[in-house]
């Protein structure tokens, strides 16, 4: 009923021709850019990696073997688990969660400052300064961080100059560079949703709470954070999804021993040319992150509508 009204009003405002064209474009977007690619990956993930001649032949039937490979590896008897890949998977998920948490903690004070000192030229300048590094390609940014964190990089030189350390720290091998890079890669996607909701908070609410004797912490716990919750969850969702699916930062900043799950997917697609296996891994990652996001949203009582705002 309500949907019908939206559509009829849409046609009334845009005319039948333009209205149909717009709806067709939205449909194209939905079907060809979102639904079909995902379905084709899903389809791939249930097939064998066959030479072209055998595709569509009697050996080409649906199978769970690609998923079994993630669980048990090449062990056909399913006696031992594929501990290497599973460990990488678990580590990726946990690390993405930690990066998300780190981003929340880092962005909240900044978002609060930006949101509550509205309108000043300084704040606008600060926002521009925050955005400018993101005009640079993600891979270049990762390399820049590699240079900063390198053995004779800026950070080590500075720390040694200040006599805080004697020997250079191997930030790369200890994954510090990796987490810094991942944390930096999508931090604006955390900052801006937070900034937007905090900016919309009526400053009188904060003053009212203060007037009633609330301490700084109480004001944030009871007034600012509940108000900012949709923005925080929205930012956290994006950062978590993108971090778990990041490739450039792990490729460039990851130590020799640390693999990111997306690197496994990349290897299946690119090195082993086994798209079917890669698709299964990618689907597992996607499904797991979606389940995690929905669980977190349920725990924090946020619904999809709030995030879409």
């Amino acid at each position: 009923m309500k949907k019908k009204m939206i559509f009829s009003e849409f046609f009334r405002n845009n005319g039948l021709g333009m209205g149909s064209l717009l709806i067709a474009l939205v449909g194209f977007w939905l079907i060809f850019l979102i639904v079909l690619p995902q379905l084709s990956m899903l389809d791939y993930s249930f097939r064998f990696n066959l030479p072209p001649a055998e595709q569509g032949g009697p050996k080409d039937f649906y199978t769970l073997s690609n998923y079994e490979h993630l669980l048990y590896g090449s062990d056909q008897t399913h006696q031992t688990y594929n501990s290497v890949d599973l460990m990488v998977f678990v580590r990726t998920i946990i690390a993405a969660m930690l990066v998300t948490l780190f981003n929340i903690v880092l962005c909240y004070p900044l978002a609060y400052f930006l949101g509550q000192s509205k309108g000043s030229g300084f704040v606008r300048l600060l926002v521009v300064l925050l955005i400018i590094p993101y005009w640079i390609n993600e891979i270049l940014r990762a390399f820049a961080l590699r240079i900063i964190f390198g053995e004779s990089g800026l950070l080590n030189e500075a720390l040694m100059f200040m006599h805080l350390i004697r020997e250079p720290i191997d930030f790369i091998r200890q994954d510090i560079a990796l987490y810094a890079g991942l944390g930096y890669a999508y931090i604006l996607l955390m900052l801006f949703p937070m900034y937007n909701v905090i900016e919309s908070l009526d400053r009188n609410q904060i003053e009212a709470a203060r007037d009633m004797g609330a301490s700084w912490i109480q004001i944030h716990r009871r007034i600012v954070i509940p108000h900012a919750k949709p923005g925080i969850v929205s930012g956290a969702t994006m950062v978590f999804m993108l971090t778990a699916g990041a490739l450039a930062a792990p490729q460039i900043l990851g130590g020799p021993s640390s693999l990111w799950f997306t690197q496994l997917v990349y290897q299946w697609f690119n090195d082993s040319l086994n798209w079917q296996q890669g698709a299964a891994y990618a689907i597992v990652l996607l499904a797991s992150t979606i389940v995690i996001v929905l669980t977190v949203m349920r725990i924090f009582k946020v619904n999809m509508g709030d995030i879409g705002k």
Partner: peptide, 29 residues
Amino acid sequence: GPNKRPTALIFQNLALFPLMKVWENISFS
């Protein structure tokens, strides 16, 4: 500071806390 004074302020826009129930609003102090 305002949180230590024996005064209470009623704002022009009232500034009730929209995410708290009425009774929680009233007893916030």
